[in-house]
């Protein structure tokens, strides 16, 4: 017992000492922070001048170079276009891109992931081949970081590998979707092809993205998908038709209001609310009065989008049902 007591006391003393060293570390952290803040204030104008193509970047070393790089990395997240290209050119010229490319081959996974992520901030297209390779890294975090960066850089070559990785669940789907979203319209043709894939999940994910990235002209194949065997696909197709504003699909969407799966009826209602048209109103009012909770609520809201006055009037009738009354109240707000 006495020995144990002694051991414990020693451990306690040791841990307190450890704690005190960590606290001591704070002075160093605070000092570093003050230096960095001063450097940020001093270098920000130079960073802005680089972005605005007014002046060449200064030659920097050490902490100043790091701070400048961080500033530009931060700016690369909020600016687009020529400004962003100038930032990428700077990182190339200082060898920062090469540095990160080397770190991408590190043995420690977190270093690879951080490097993959940073390459996206830097924005240099030269990093694309290495990042494409990193999509097959054995660690998920690295793959996800690489996917995100490929989206940020905007590489068309990444479209196919990203979609495959997303389908095979090797990269989280939300990360893949945003990367494709960042890449934008160049991804649409391939996505349209994939709407005919054998896997329902692939068809659903692709058609959903087409809704965000495409325009009304891309909606050709979509109405047929409203009769797909998978409910997820039908709902996603309806959602995208609404987003694309494809008024030619109106009749097909009105038919979809009778789908046997509620989520499809919800999506069709929403889409009709976005597309509009008097013909849609009859179907929507019917769903709002007779259907179950989610479709009825969606249909009532959609009807209110198309013709608020009509919904307010219809809500006054005795057989209106609670969903129309809710939508009417929201209109009057």
């Amino acid at each position: 017992m006495e020995l144990l007591g002694l051991v414990i006391l020693v451990l306690v003393a040791g841990s307190m000492l450890f704690l005190l060293t960590l606290v001591g570390r704070r002075s160093w952290i605070a000092y570093e922070a003050r230096r960095r803040d001063a450097a940020v204030a001093a270098l920000r104008p130079a960073a802005i001048e680089l972005i605005e193509d007014v002046a060449d970047p200064p030659a920097l070393r050490g902490v100043d170079a790091e701070v400048f790089a961080e500033l530009l990395g931060g700016y690369s997240l909020v600016v687009r276009g020529a400004s962003r290209e100038r930032i990428a050119a700077y990182f190339e010229s200082t060898g920062a891109v090469d540095e990160q490319l080397a770190l991408l081959r590190s043995r420690r996974a977190w270093r690879r992931a951080t490097a993959a992520f940073t390459l996206g901030d830097m924005g240099s297209p030269r990093a694309v081949p290495a990042l494409l390779g990193a999509l097959d890294d054995k660690r998920r975090a690295v793959r996800a970081a690489a996917a995100r960066s490929l989206g940020r850089i905007g590489s068309d070559d990444a479209i196919e590998p990203l979609i495959t990785a997303g389908v095979e669940r090797r990269i989280p789907r939300d990360v893949v979707s945003l990367a494709l979203f960042d890449i934008g319209t160049p991804a649409v043709p391939r996505l349209l092809e994939l709407t005919r894939d054998d896997e329902p999940l692939v068809r659903a994910a692709s058609v959903e993205l087409v809704g965000y990235l495409g325009n009304a002209g891309d909606s050709g194949p979509l109405p047929a998908m409203l009769r797909d065997t998978s409910a997820d696909v039908r709902a996603a197709a309806a959602g995208s038709l609404g987003r694309l504003g494809a008024s030619t699909a109106r009749d097909a969407l009105i038919d979809a209001l009778d789908d046997r799966v509620p989520s499809v009826r919800v999506a069709a209602s929403r889409a009709l609310g976005q597309i509009g048209g008097r013909r849609a109103l009859d179907g929507l009012l019917r769903v709002a009065q007779a259907d179950e909770h989610e479709p009825a609520a969606a249909a009532a809201r959609a009807a209110a989008r198309i013709d608020p006055a009509l919904v307010v009037h219809a809500a006054g009738r005795a057989d209106a049902g609670p969903y129309l009354r809710e939508a009417a109240d929201l209109v009057e707000l």
Binding site: I51, E52, L77, V78, V79, R80, G81, A82, S83, R84
Partner: peptide, 8 residues
């Protein structure tokens, strides 16, 4: 929206 173009 951000990301934005300063020129725009």
């Amino acid at each position: 929206r951000k990301p934005f173009s300063p020129q725009e």
